[in-house]
């Protein structure tokens, strides 16, 4: 019996060379793409919004009959390279629920992210985009309403017996669960 001969295998060598070329070529291309993607995906590294407390108004400004009133929240905000000292972050509806208690609702519709209007004729809030309706307390009040959840309640604190503070944060829209965006 002869020793197994190593065949001259041009096909195999060609394949190896081809594979090497593909790997090398791919690697050289992957590097700049990777460098780009690393920067492009930077927003994912930003911490999810924990919300910022800001003073919105005074307790006496809210009607005692529980009618919601809309307020624009202003706070410092950094937009990439621009720093705004007091820029509108978003809007909340505040509503008296008692002598010393206030309910704060995010004015953004949890369906598709439009701003809802207070529409007493419709029994609460109405979203102009896809006609979601909500009761005054923010709950979905119509089974046909396209919104997956009620208006998002925000944390409220009454400080010094008079100042209404709200922790403003955004939530993901279009999903049932209320998760910070």
């Amino acid at each position: 019996m002869n020793e197994p001969r190593i065949p001259r295998d041009p096909a195999r060598r060609d394949f190896l060379r081809g594979a090497a070329a593909a790997v090398l070529g791919g690697a050289t291309l992957a590097m700049p793409v990777g460098a780009g993607l690393f920067v492009f995906l930077d927003p994912l590294r930003a911490p999810r919004g924990a919300g910022t407390w800001s003073r919105v108004t005074r307790l006496s400004a809210l009607p005692a009959d529980g009618m919601p009133r809309r307020f624009t929240l202003r706070a410092e905000r950094v937009n990439a390279w621009t720093r705004y000292s007091a820029t509108p972050l978003g809007a909340v509806y505040l509503r008296r629920t008692g002598e010393q208690s206030v309910q704060a609702l995010h004015a953004t519709c949890p369906h598709a992210g439009c701003l809802v209007d207070y529409a007493p004729a419709r029994g609460g809030f109405l979203c102009p985009c896809h006609n979601s309706t909500f009761a005054v307390d923010g709950a979905v009040n119509d089974p046909a309403s396209p919104s997956p959840r009620g208006l998002d309640a925000l944390e409220v604190e009454i400080r010094h017996g008079e100042e209404v503070w709200v922790r403003f944060q955004n939530f993901r829209v279009g999903v049932r669960e209320k998760v910070p965006a």
Partner: peptide, 28 residues
């Protein structure tokens, strides 16, 4: 609205809108 719709797509919904927006909010 389409960005928010993208947010409900299973799998990519939790991160793709943020990448496209370049942050949590619309900005530069």
């Amino acid at each position: 609205v389409p960005l928010n719709i993208l947010g409900v797509v299973p799998g990519v919904g939790s991160w793709l809108p943020q990448v496209l927006l370049g942050g949590a909010e619309v900005g530069h």
